[in-house]
Design a protein around this nucleic acid. Structure first.
Lengths: 230, 230
DNA sequence: CCAAAAGTGTTAAGAGTACACCCATGA
DNA sequence: TCATGGGTGTACTCTTAACACTTTTGG
């Protein structure tokens, strides 16, 4: 514990932020690097931790300055510390996992980033550093989470048709789900409240009834844990 | 990502290693500190990361040198980075979660530690730094793991009566379990192989049949994940 | 023969799964 | 009126949960 070798190790944070739109799919926020190494390559938003700030503050700061994202949900994902993961030297990255609703704001690439954009998790470009491995880990976390926590509040619009939620599950689990069984299960959890309102301009078909989350119940179940095997 | 403020941050690893014996209970390995800060206080084994080594190498090294423990199972737990968590300055700790069978070796406190010992998770002393919070996090992880992974191989003797495994589950989940339903469930998973051998000197009662894990099946289910709601 | 722990099966309730037809809307 | 997606129920299977008496051993 107490030998104190001079360490030549630096610390950064990176964020895997997922967004979702029913038309498209689950996407990850990436920024395009303006400086070496990996200049002009896509990478996760992130950066060095400043001495006095907490890790969460570092992530939040980087997301705001690099992409204009005000994050909705954030949890620690994993710490990546392989000695060779960064060509600049020993740099440890504490990766975070975030969720936002991308329709709530406009992405804004800043000085730090040439560009910022959403990428479908099935069509990711080559990423800088070991960021592909980080994204992989985050996707696994997302798939695992959906089994024991309600999900959707942080990703969907305030009011949404049940089919949006169902598509979210289908996308994350990467397989089809029976509509009737899904609704039965969701109703049984009691996390949705219906409204006397319908979808405004469906691209086709009968307009769907809109729902929103019962936040109290949602966060209670998030704490207690559920078993959602579908 | 690329401003590089001079960081004055150091990096250490700490390990929450769980051991189990059916007579006693689930225990955590602690060492007694020989130097300030928190001199003579119990703390988690751990220490500073050396420049070229991976995080896992750092944990393994510290466990061997501080307590003579050759670890059996290790996974990353969480990274603790609050700026005030260590009075010596900004020190980030990457905490690991480990499992061993304590009957396999003798603890050996080394120069770095005044003493090394097992403590029942229900009777922990006051710990140095934020180590109580780290242990809390590890216990939560253990309770969560038992629900979606088989557990026991790393903790129990090679051959054991089913009641040992059942007590493990009861201890981790902290509630009684119905013996018949438990056995049905475990048999259904197919992770145990019976032997034509009985417990040698039970403290009382009928000697139990001994079992061991079917490792192939065990690790297969560990990978696939199970849903063990009992 | 007594105390202690092991071995063992049935039933009832709830959850999961598979499956198809009619309805409301816009073009 | 057609195409598109929304809304809805039933039957079967499987899993879970509750529950108690008999057997084997050592003292």
């Amino acid at each position: 514990m107490d030998l104190e070798p001079k360490q030549n190790i630096r610390l950064c944070v990176d964020a895997v932020v997922f967004g979702y739109t029913a038309k498209e799919s689950i996407s990850v926020l990436l920024i395009k690097r303006t400086i070496p190494p990996f200049m002009h390559r896509w990478a996760l938003p992130g950066g060095f931790v400043i001495d006095g700030e907490t890790l969460e503050e570092a992530v939040t700061r980087e997301l705001e300055t690099e992409a204009g994202v005000h994050i909705n949900y954030l949890e620690q994902l994993y710490t990546f510390g392989q000695p060779e993961r960064d060509p600049r030297g020993r740099i440890i990255s504490i990766a975070y996992f975030g969720l936002v609703n991308p329709t709530n704001f406009k992405l804004a690439a800043s000085s730090d980033a040439e560009d910022a954009n959403w990428f479908d998790i099935k069509k990711l470009p080559d990423l800088a550093f070991d960021h592909s491995a980080i994204v992989e880990t985050a996707i696994k976390r997302l798939r695992a989470k959906i089994r024991y926590e309600p999900i959707g509040f942080e990703l969907l619009d305030q009011k949404f048709p049940i089919s949006d939620l169902e598509k979210l599950y289908e996308t994350v689990l990467d397989r089809p789900i029976d509509r009737r069984n899904f609704q039965k299960k969701i109703n049984h959890l009691g996390i949705l409240a219906g409204h006397n309102e319908k979808q405004k301009h469906p691209s086709a078909g009968r307009p769907a009834k809109l729902y929103s989350f019962n936040e109290e119940r949602y966060f209670q179940l998030k704490k207690e844990g559920i078993s959602f095997e579908i």
